[in-house]
Amino acid sequence: MRAAILCNCTNNTAISPLLFSKRSIFSSSSSLKTLRNPNITHFSSRSLVVETVESELSENAEKKSRRLILLRHAESSGDPYLRDHDRPLSKAGRIDAVNISHQLQQMGWMPELILSRVQNLSDAARTKETLRIMQEHVPGFLEAEVHFVASFYSIAAMDGQTAEHLQRTICEYSRDEIFTVMCMGHNRGWEEAASMLSGAAIELKTCNAALLEATGKSWDEAFSSVGLGGWKLHGIVKPSTAS
Score class of each variant (00 low, 15 high):
residue 130 T to G: 04
residue 130 T to A: 07
residue 133 I to D: 01
residue 133 I to A: 03
residue 133 I to H: 00
residue 133 I to C: 02
residue 133 I to W: 01
residue 134 M to I: 03
residue 134 M to A: 09
residue 137 H to C: 09
residue 138 V to W: 07
residue 138 V to T: 08
residue 140 G to T: 03
residue 141 F to S: 00
residue 142 L to W: 06
residue 143 E to H: 10
residue 143 E to C: 08
residue 143 E to G: 10
residue 144 A to K: 03
residue 146 V to C: 12
residue 147 H to C: 07
residue 149 V to Q: 11
residue 150 A to K: 15
residue 152 F to A: 00
residue 153 Y to C: 04
residue 153 Y to H: 12
residue 154 S to T: 13
residue 154 S to Y: 09
residue 155 I to V: 14
residue 155 I to F: 01
residue 155 I to H: 01
residue 156 A to M: 09
residue 159 D to M: 12
residue 159 D to A: 13
residue 160 G to S: 11
residue 161 Q to S: 10
residue 161 Q to E: 15
residue 161 Q to H: 13
residue 163 A to V: 00
residue 164 E to G: 14
residue 164 E to C: 13
residue 164 E to H: 12
residue 166 L to Y: 05
residue 168 R to A: 13
residue 168 R to G: 10
residue 171 C to R: 12
residue 171 C to K: 12
residue 173 Y to Q: 09
residue 173 Y to K: 13
residue 175 R to N: 13
residue 175 R to G: 05
residue 175 R to D: 12
residue 176 D to V: 02
residue 176 D to K: 10
residue 176 D to M: 08
residue 177 E to P: 00
residue 178 I to Q: 14
residue 178 I to L: 11
residue 179 F to D: 15
residue 179 F to W: 13
residue 182 M to A: 03
residue 184 M to A: 09
residue 185 G to F: 02
residue 186 H to V: 02
residue 187 N to A: 08
residue 188 R to Q: 12
residue 188 R to G: 02
residue 190 W to E: 03
residue 190 W to I: 03
residue 193 A to M: 07
residue 193 A to S: 14
residue 194 A to R: 03
residue 194 A to K: 04
residue 195 S to I: 00
residue 196 M to A: 12
residue 197 L to A: 01
residue 197 L to F: 13
residue 198 S to V: 01
residue 199 G to Y: 10
residue 200 A to R: 15
residue 201 A to Q: 15
residue 201 A to H: 15
residue 201 A to N: 15
residue 203 E to Y: 14
residue 203 E to T: 15
residue 204 L to E: 02
residue 205 K to H: 13
residue 206 T to E: 08
residue 207 C to D: 12
residue 208 N to I: 04
residue 209 A to F: 07
residue 209 A to L: 10
